[in-house]
Design a binder for these strands. Structure first.
Lengths: 134, 134
DNA sequence: ATACTTGCTTGCGTTTTGCAAGTGCAAACA
DNA sequence: TGTTTGCACTTGCAAAACGCAAGCAAGTAT
């Protein structure tokens, strides 16, 4: 996850978030909007704490997420998506749709995707707007 | 790249193609339709031959690509996308659009994306249909 | 027959990952 | 005010994955 491999847009994108964990971090931030370090550790996939720290740093350096002060404690840190990170919503939706077609996925996700299919563009636009308000 | 981490659609997807190379292999197959082992090695990113072999095997095992006999030589092997692989076209397009917005990408890719934006759904549908014909 | 191409495999040193334990600071508690 | 707890990371180290170079078997060309 260091230098650029080629100028191909896919390749450049993978250089930033193309590892086993980054998209899961971004996923969590898309559903929760703001999360602490500890919140990420609670995700069912069980990311190791050192890997989490490394990924958060890299995503921050690449401008996909940002830190902000926790309103009620200096000991806590909040992470949230930047505009660049929010712009990944369409990618995330398409991955979900692909997974739904080819895997068995949880019922709540299916329900969400049912809404997506009614009006994909509208759903995405609304979701992104909502994220920007937080 | 072995076992399933969770039932989340994003997580399950990453378990299949969420490494540094798989999407580049799939990208190459989307633009070229059919490629030999050696063709993949020629990609500008420079994948190592043992890694390529491992990824092709994993993608085949997961039903994203398939091998077929080369029409003019038994020494050569052709790889192409299956329906499951072709279904990743929308994901790939969205990644391209994201990259275009946040990185500097080659002119030819920009031209392609200009076409996409005129009629995204139509472009994707046509592209997938074309891939299925080969 | 011989040399060359093609699609891998093997060895091995380097890098990344993953697990466990530890550190430093802030907040809560006694 | 001293102490314990919670939170955000760091550090150490073994295991796995990666990356490069060389090797190899089957197929093709000369």
């Amino acid at each position: 996850m260091k230098s650029q491999r080629s100028e191909c847009p896919i390749s450049q994108s993978l250089d930033v978030w193309g590892d086993k964990w980054s998209l899961l971090i971004i996923r969590d931030l898309m559903t929760a909007k703001q999360l602490t370090y500890g919140d990420f550790l609670k995700a069912p996939e069980g990311i190791a704490t050192n890997i989490l720290a490394a990924r958060l740093l890299m995503l921050e350096e690449n401008g996909l997420i940002e830190k902000l002060d926790h309103p009620e404690s200096k000991a806590k840190v909040l992470y949230r998506l930047t505009g660049k990170g929010i712009d990944l919503v369409p990618v995330m939706i398409e991955i979900n749709l692909w997974a739904e077609k080819h895997f068995t996925i949880p019922a709540d996700r299916k329900a969400m995707l049912k809404e997506v299919k009614k009006d994909k563009e509208g759903f995405i636009k609304a979701g992104m707007k909502e994220l920007r308000r937080s």
